[in-house]
């Protein structure tokens, strides 16, 4: 099965068809998607700024991360589910869209950045947890995360202007 036939069979799914047929399905899914991404960005912004060195509502960076990350992850899961449904409704066109592809790349890059931070810099967090200026690696991870998630939002909005709508 080639990629094109896979995409076509996703497009042909009864669920995809239902999203296309129901006038409210796409806007509702899209609104939930935007709400989820604002929660992802809004919560990660607070953590990233703390990593860069701006104070948050609590001093400990580690407690801030453990406190807010469940919200970021929860919202991210909602964004993935709603995003997948939006994708399914028009799979062939999304897969061919440059902005959509770049957006997926940016999300993967943000994930790798986060994984590296958790695996390396966060292990030494006890040494800088309560200091106002975190080490360079933490600040770099914070800046990179902010840049990548900003890019995700820009690319996501751009898809709406560049997609070849087939229905």
């Amino acid at each position: 099965m080639t990629l094109q036939t896979t995409l076509q069979s996703i497009y042909d799914l009864p669920l995809s068809n239902a999203i296309r047929e129901n006038a409210n399905a796409f806007p509702v899914l899209e609104s939930l998607h935007v709400l989820a991404i604002t929660l992802v960005f809004g919560t990660i912004l607070i953590v990233d700024l703390r990593l860069v060195g701006y104070a948050a509502h609590r001093r400990s960076a580690n407690r801030l991360i453990t406190e807010l990350l469940p919200f970021t992850w929860g919202a991210f899961v909602v964004a993935i589910i709603t995003g997948s449904l939006l994708f399914a409704s028009n799979a062939v066109a999304y897969a061919a869209n440059t902005e959509f592809r770049l957006k997926l790349l940016a999300i993967v890059a943000a994930g790798i950045n986060m994984a590296i931070f958790h695996a390396t810099t966060q292990r030494t967090i006890a040494q800088w947890d309560e200091t106002a200026a975190p080490p360079f690696a933490a600040r770099a991870a914070g800046v990179l995360s902010l840049v990548l998630w900003t890019l995700v939002i820009f690319l996501g909005r751009w898809i709406g202007f560049t997609l070849d709508v087939l229905f």
């Binding site: 604002t38 919560t43 202007f161």
Partner: peptide
């Protein structure tokens, strides 16, 4: 229009994050 809309979404994300906490 896409750029201004993206900035608009970034700004509402800041409101939502701040309001959430």
């Amino acid at each position: 229009i896409p750029t201004v809309q993206s900035v608009h979404i970034l700004a509402i994300a800041v409101v939502v994050g701040s309001a959430l906490v």
